[in-house]
């Protein structure tokens, strides 16, 4: 397993990765509370962007309902905790299961009829909105009034109950993001990863080579939504409150996929890069426009910035930067280039 994961990764990229990881591990020692909160947000979007990327970037499935999977995961573990006192360390299993089941249900319904592309995207939006309205009307879980978690002991490190300081959440998210990166790396190098990319490029050709398209798409949507469900646990316990209006909002989905698209869909590091770049950028924009006291001005420029990036770099920023740094052999796409000279 480790051998497949390392295959084709040049030493230079591994060193760069190790440096970045060390910097991220050490970061809480050097930054203030505000910067830490930005980093937490960045890691959250890196993780969720990676999960989303698994569907669109690897298997070519455009989901615009990522918020549904995160939201369901959030509500599952928060509900268990609040109503039955089940700690999130156990509750997360329900979260992952519920989100994965929701993903599988959407996938099963769509892929049976070969609903793809824009149609699949619209179906995911429909399901997401449907769920939002249902939860909005579900009084047991707070409905539109929101679900609030007990806030106690925000200083320590109670991992079992996910009660603690922002630093704890930071490290939890860092571990999740690293784990997600490794998982994606492993999956991409596996048979499933080859099959996903083949399906993304040409479904009929993939079928003719024995690829069970339905099963592979189901795997993509299930794994990805289950992973998003796990992010929901952190979302719930970090914010301590949940509102259907925000958790299941289309804008929440957009925030999650933004980093991945800007970083580079289909690349392994693009989602992480994109989130680490965009989140501070968004914060900077907030800071810069705060003084204007004009509601909407931040969103206005945000929209302009995103549109400009899409127009300027339709393949995302990461491939270009990776090329410039000589790190672009991280992606499996280039393994062959190595083998040409080696093996």
């Amino acid at each position: 397993m480790i051998e497949t994961m390392l295959a084709g990764a040049p030493r230079r990229a591994l060193v760069a990765l190790a440096l970045l990881l060390s910097a991220l591990v050490a970061a809480p020692l050097f930054v203030n509370a505000y910067a830490l909160s930005v980093l937490i947000l960045a890691l959250y979007y890196a993780y969720t962007g990676q999960a989303w990327n698994m569907m669109i970037g690897f298997a070519g499935l455009l989901s615009l309902g990522e918020a549904m999977f995160v939201g369901l995961g959030a509500y599952a573990s928060a509900g268990l905790f609040q109503k039955f006192g089940v700690p999130p360390v156990l509750g997360l299993f329900l979260s992952v299961a519920v989100s994965a089941a929701a993903g599988a249900a959407v996938g099963w319904l769509a892929f049976r009829f070969d609903i793809n592309g824009v149609y699949f995207a619209l179906l995911t939006i429909a399901f997401s909105e449907f769920t939002r309205i249902l939860v909005d009307n579900w009084a047991y879980l707070g409905g539109s009034e929101g679900l609030f978690l007990h806030v106690s002991g925000l200083a320590g490190w109670d991992i079992v109950n996910l009660r603690g300081s922002p630093v704890m959440f930071y490290y939890v998210l860092l571990a999740m993001t690293s784990g997600m990166f490794l998982l994606c790396r492993y999956l991409l190098a596996s048979r499933l990863g080859y099959y996903w990319r083949a399906i993304r490029e040409d479904q009929d050709a993939a079928r003719s080579l024995g690829v069970d398209v339905f099963a592979c798409k189901m795997a993509a949507v299930t794994i990805s939504s289950g992973a998003a469900g796990l992010a929901g646990v952190v979302y719930a316990f970090y914010y301590n409150n949940l509102f259907p209006e925000t958790a299941f909002a289309l804008s929440h989905s957009i925030d999650m996929l933004l980093g991945a698209v800007v970083g580079g869909v289909g690349t392994l590091f693009g989602p992480i890069f994109g989130a680490l770049l965009l989140t501070p950028l968004g914060e900077a924009l907030t800071a810069a426009t705060d003084g204007l006291r004009l509601p909407g001005v931040k969103q206005f420029f945000w929209g302009v910035v995103v549109a400009a990036i899409v127009l300027a770099r339709p393949t995302g920023l990461w491939p270009m930067i990776a090329g410039a740094l000589g790190l672009d052999k991280v992606g499996l796409d280039k393994v062959d280039a190595d083998e040409k000279s080696g093996r």
């Binding site: 909407g296 969103q299 206005f300 945000w302 929209g303």
Partner: peptide, 13 residues
């Protein structure tokens, strides 16, 4: 989608 979503954000703002 992202371009249109960005346009939507800009218009609302």
């Amino acid at each position: 989608f992202l371009l249109m979503a960005a346009l939507a954000t800009t218009l609302t703002a």
